[in-house]
């Protein structure tokens, strides 16, 4: 009997979308700064951002659990304010997801901004446009393909993340049980039919998201080249 956990699908989609939206807010300024700064220490920041790429998810999950837990300054402050705990809750998962998906957003953002001809940016500033308008009118429109890629990659990566979510979320149905964890549960219960179908569905969704993005990106880039 196949019993796909639709609740988990819904929860995962919500988690991935919120994470990607937050990453736009945090990642865009960060990537812009990294692309434009002459500060030598910026490489350390860049390395720090990329760290989740190389750190084992369980290590990251363990740190995040300790960092957000009720015995940490952040965790106890949150508990005092919100009255609930940060780990094993949806907001906790969002914070963890933002952390582990950070490089998947910032790296493409960064390469998008780096591909922008600096002379255009300098021209914009020297013509009196100011920093913020230069960012929105010149930087962002020219770096679009990279920004879209960052949004979609962080979305797709959050859809499939497992280790951190298991560690920080605690696999609680309806609250923190995402698709990948529900697949793990089915496999553990030797319910291979459900595990197989859920995995196939996740595969189709992830592939569709990527195909759609690359199609858009291609069409967009071509329009840009023609003009």
């Amino acid at each position: 009997m196949i019993t796909i956990d639709w609740q988990a699908f819904w929860l995962t989609a919500r988690l991935a979308l919120i994470t990607s939206l937050i990453l736009i807010l945090i990642g865009l300024p960060l990537a812009w700064w990294l692309a434009r700064t002459r500060f030598r220490g910026a490489v350390f920041v860049e390395a720090l951002v990329a760290l989740p790429l190389v750190l084992p998810p369980t290590v990251l999950g363990f740190y995040v659990l300790m960092f957000l837990g009720p015995y940490s300054p952040l965790g106890s402050a949150y508990e005092a304010l919100a009255g609930t705990l940060l780990p094993f809750s949806f907001p906790g998962l969002v914070i963890a997801s933002v952390l582990f998906s950070l490089p998947f957003a910032v790296q493409p953002f960064l390469s998008g901004f780096r591909s922008v001809d600096t002379r255009l940016l300098d021209a914009s500033v020297s013509l009196g446009a100011g920093r913020l308008p230069t960012f929105f009118r010149v930087g962002v429109p020219l770096a679009w393909p990279g920004l879209l890629a960052g949004f979609v990659l962080s979305f797709a990566h959050t859809l499939g993340e497992f280790g951190v979510v298991l560690m920080v979320g605690g696999n609680i149905a309806g609250k923190t049980r995402t698709i990948s964890i529900s697949i793990y549960d089915s496999v553990q219960a030797m319910d291979y039919a459900t595990a197989g179908w859920t995995s196939a569905l996740l595969l189709v969704i992830s592939a569709s998201v990527l195909i759609l993005t690359y199609t858009l990106q291609r069409r967009y880039t071509k329009t840009w080249l023609r003009t």
Binding site: P133, F136, R137, V138, P141, L142, R219, Y220, T223
Partner: peptide, 19 residues
């Protein structure tokens, strides 16, 4: 700024109706 950008870079901002 977003709206005004169309004045400066019309090709980029107004063409892709998709967005």
């Amino acid at each position: 700024c977003f709206r005004r950008s169309s004045v400066f870079i019309p090709a980029l901002w107004s063409r892709p109706r998709l967005f």
